[in-house]
Every structure is written in structure tokens, then in C-alpha cells.
Design a binder for these strands. Sequence first.
DNA 1: GCAATTTGACCAAT
DNA 2: ATTGGTCAAATTGC
Length: 371
Amino acid sequence: MESPTAWVESLPVNRKKAIHELTQGQEWTDKLREILRGSENIECDPISLDGIVGQIMGMFDNTLTIIGSCSSNKTIKFPTNMDEQNSMKSDEPFQLQTRCLDSSRSSGEHKSTNCSESLRLQTNYLDSSHSSNEQKSRTCDESSRMIIPGKTKRGCYKRKNSWASTQITSILTDDGHAWRKYGQKKILESKHERSYYRCTYKVDQGCQATKQVQMIEDEPPLYKITYMKSHTCKNLQRAPQIILDSPDPRDTSILVNFGAKGITGNKQVNPLFHIMKHESEDSSPSLSNWRDNKSTPSTNCLSLDLFAVGSQVPLESVSNSKGLDHEAFLWSKHGNMTSSGTYSSMASTQWHEMDHMFGSNDFNDFPFSVL
DNA sequence: GCAATTTGACCAAT
DNA sequence: ATTGGTCAAATTGC
């Protein structure tokens, strides 16, 4: 009888690796769940938690790398067939967010995979508490120059005392905050310029929140949005909005407001899921403060919150940069996802949808695929 | 006229 | 020296 995993062998190598990464992620998530079940107070050894979280987030990062970002000559293809995608529309946007807490003390926390090694999977990149000097670059540098372990690449650094929340999205959504653009710069090894935004109320209220928007793919448009520092301004959030496809990240003028159901006009916004990555450092405040919209989660708290977002999830949960009340999920070994206890769960249809996506044998069941 | 954006220059991290 | 991030004067749009 054929092995249950025999089908994997017939897939292209990058897909196999991606599947391997996701499978490993499931297993590590199970371990994390066991830890959580064994501790009501979640006062786990932060080091071991960091390690597990790092493993999981590393796998997501690797998967994302494999699927798209490190293949400069590849594009990410959105579903074009409703049958293929089981109710996904080809023009529906999707969002990927990764959030992880990085307890590294290093200021040079670039997690990345050199393109020349893009398929050499790195699953420990977030175990940075113990490898603070290790800097891996996910540059898709054509020259594939090597990064010597222990050495940092010139110019590649992140400022100290800051955390970052990275979101990859096919659309530019309004997170409800007022942003003012203050800069735009050509970034090395990126064909698109990066736009810099700060909170409009920086002067008025001293809000230090900033975000960066950079297009990482042309067709279909794919943007990387990085939020840094949390909002401290008191202004009420605007209703969530979606920015219609704009070829230029600089263009944030086309906004369509939509309600909590994620509807914009007759078009349903269906960001399939989020995986949000947080990089925080020791100055990060507590999770309670995070929830109070005052600051970022602490690495001392268990703050791995992978969360899935479907069309029925309130959009506040989708693009709220403050990270409040996100729906969260964990993936079980069976390919299904179970909501974590401390978060509200997704509607069953959404679990089904996600199950369909990830329980399938081919990337065609992903909301995108590598051409 | 005011506010937002653009863009070259400057600063800081490595 | 190189690069990313920010500043601020000039420009643009309402």
C-alpha cells in the first residue's frame, strides 16, 4: 500500500521542502500546545518557549521564502479558478502576516536566507536569544554573495529598542490609523522603493509609531508592510478601510471603507490568513500593555499568536496594527486547526477553508503558488 | 493658506 | 564606506 506521504515525493523539490516546513511547524506547535496545557499560568521557561516559537516562526518564514520571496525570477500566482480554490476568487486579496517575538538582544536582527541558500532550510533563526550575532540575510541577491556567520552585512541592521510587525499583503489596507509619509528610498536589491510613514499625531501627541510599505512583487502586486513602535496617540481609529489595488505603494489615496464583515461594496475582502511576525527586544513592554494598545508584547509572555483570518472575521482583526483581539489558531497534526483557548475561534467554515488549503497535496490549494 | 507629499541631504548603525 | 532611516525645504493639491 502506498505510503500516505508518497504523494509528496512526486512534488517539485521546493514544494516538498515547503510541505516539510509546514509539517515540522505542526509538530512544534503541538509541543507548544502541550506546554500550554501543562501550565495554567503560562509561566514557562522563556528560553524554551522562545526556542519553540522560533522553530515555528522559522518554518513559516522558510515556507514563505521557498514559495516566493527568494525566487527573484518567480512570481506568486493567485488562484484563478474558483473550483481550484474552493471559493477563493482570483482577484481576492490575501494577506500573510507573521508575528513572532524575538527576544534577541542584538540590534542586527535580520532574519533571512541568502538566496544562494534559499532552499537550505533554516529552522532556528528565531532562536536568537542564543545567537544574537548571527545574522542571516534573506537577500535575493543575484550575486548570491555569502554571509559569513558571525559577520553582519554592511548596511543591514535594525535599530535597537524597537519591535517590528511585518505583514505581507496583496492589497494595501488601511489599519485605521492616520499616517503621514515622510520619506521614500530605493532599497538595495529591491526594485521597488520603500515608503516611510509616521503617525500623523507624532508632533501633536508624540506618537512614535511608524510603518514602512514596500512593493515586493509586481504581478500580482504584493506589499510588505512593516509596523514599528506602537501607537500612543489617543485618536480614535478610523473605520477599517481597504486601499484598492495600487501599483505604487506611495499611492494611498484610493480608499474604500468597509464594515466588520469585510465587505467592500459588493466585493468581499477575503484575506485568507495572517501570520504575523514580531521582532521585539528586551525593551518591549508587557502583553497587557499590548492589549491596552500602549505598547508591544513582551517576550516574557507567551505571545505567539498565529491567527487566521477569513472573510467572516471582523476586519478589525485583520488589519488592526495594534494587534488587539486577534483570532488565533494553532495547527494540529491532523492538518486541522484548533483555536487556542485564550482566543476566540474562527467560524467552522473558515477552519474548513484553511483545512482545505493546507491539507491538500498541492500548492494549487494554497491561495498562491509558485510559477 | 494649509496640509500632505516629494526628494535630496544628512545621520546613525554596521 | 555602505546602507537604511529620518529630516526638512521645495513642491503639489485641495
